[in-house]
Design a protein around this nucleic acid. Sequence first.
DNA 1: CGGGATCCTGGATGATACTG
DNA 2: CAGTATCATCCAGGATCCCG
Lengths: 121, 121
Amino acid sequence: MCPPAMTLSTPVPLAEHRACPVTDVLNRVGDRWSVVVIVLLGGKPFRFNELHRSIEGISQRMLTRTLRGLEHEGLVSREVFPTNPPGVEYALTALGESLLVPLSALARWAVEHHGELAAKP
Amino acid sequence: MCPPAMTLSTPVPLAEHRACPVTDVLNRVGDRWSVVVIVLLGGKPFRFNELHRSIEGISQRMLTRTLRGLEHEGLVSREVFPTNPPGVEYALTALGESLLVPLSALARWAVEHHGELAAKP
DNA sequence: CGGGATCCTGGATGATACTG
DNA sequence: CAGTATCATCCAGGATCCCG
């Protein structure tokens, strides 16, 4: 691989696999929570605690860190409303929305072939 | 989410996000080496050390573990040739090949939008 | 050649408590 | 409400040595 066609038949030097866009994207989004957050925000904007309640098992800390990461990468936007009490709304950026597409392809595969993967103990 | 359409607008109960196929697939393949191995094997079958040489930075241990994992999940096949010295050939299964497709979609996104992501220090 | 076994470390994550 | 700070934990992953 990698660019432009990781599809097949490329002998692959791989001198710097870390520089590979695919690996790069996976390193950013392949963590435990990012995809879940992106998918949720794909539906509608969320407030912080609203997200916190929607994602079972995530800690406040990790939600913060995940959002900060996605925000820093330009996938998620953060808007503060100086109301009382203050509210913060998170949403996908255009870039984030575009990522939703290939993610959906993967999701489709996951749903379709889920049963074919060996069961996990 | 998750099934069948994680695309958008789903309120998402998420009671068991671990059980979500998408999260599940990501947990299996979202590690540091699996995708690289899958993509390489997508081109042609590989011998162990051939893979080891092709993937810069991977340790023998992790290559072994990654292959074992993928094999156990049914994505990769392992065939031993009782030659001298013995040879072992790894290849994608049909399931593995099918995963290559959505992976390519993600790859395409990665290549296209790679520059738009905030640079990493 | 193709691994297995062991030891060890850093980074990712969780739990808990506190705050503007 | 939306975080920050701190401490504790866990495990992926690397290094190394050994073996059939």
